[in-house]
């Protein structure tokens, strides 16, 4: 195998290993498939150019994610300029908050949304294990109360109490994080 073939093969391995993760990271922040793909592609190009600067103090994936994150922030900064005059009314915010399919439309909303998500993810990690698993089963696996009650050996009424207590703890945790 020639040197160029060897390099190509290593690059492809890198893509196979990290592209999907980086793409999910980008999508969680920008909600635009085409743009996320472009940013991931740019990230790989930068990473390959700067590979000799990677010192190995973090994992390769963490280093790549940091570069991608910077690219996303650069993108928002560019977008922010064109959105700087956008005014969002209170009513629009209120109706958006109720709609579970709500996707933020401009950089201000996006950065707020990401901040909320980041804090919520942190707070979810701090829930008691059993509560977190029940929240995951309900929200991520979309199981119904009856299935979850059986799986976690709780009564249906206890299931709702746990959901409420988990939400109350998430709410308190988010309040604390915002306050700090």
């Amino acid at each position: 195998m020639s040197i160029s073939q060897n390099v190509q093969s290593k690059n492809e391995e890198l893509v196979e290993e990290h592209a999907d993760y980086l793409f999910q990271f980008a999508m969680s922040k920008i909600h635009n498939r085409e743009l996320a793909l472009d940013l991931v592609q740019d990230t790989f190009l930068v990473c390959l150019q700067k590979m000799d600067q990677f010192e190995g103090r973090s994992s390769l994936r963490t280093w790549m994610t940091t570069i991608l994150n910077r690219k996303i922030i650069d993108h928002w900064r560019k977008e922010k300029r064109s959105y700087s005059s956008v005014d969002i009314s209170e009513n629009e915010n209120a109706s958006n908050a109720i709609n579970s399919n709500y996707i933020p439309q401009n950089p201000h909303q996006i950065s707020e949304e990401i901040e909320k998500r980041t804090i919520l993810e942190f707070c979810l990690d701090n829930l008691p294990d059993a509560w977190r698993e029940i929240v995951h089963a309900k929200y991520y696996d979309e199981k119904n109360g009856e299935e979850i009650s059986k799986e976690f050996n709780v009564t249906p009424s206890n299931f709702w109490v746990i959901i409420h207590r988990a939400k109350a703890q998430l709410r308190a945790c988010m309040d604390n994080k915002y306050a700090s």
């Binding site: 793409f23 399919n101 998500r117 919520l120 929200y139």
Partner: peptide, 22 residues
């Protein structure tokens, strides 16, 4: 009010996770 917001974010996180594979 707050629970509704948490509910929406959890749902949107779930939706993203499902469709975001390359």
């Amino acid at each position: 009010k707050d629970s509704k917001i948490i509910h929406r974010i959890l749902r949107s996180m779930r939706n993203d996770g499902m469709h975001n594979h390359l």
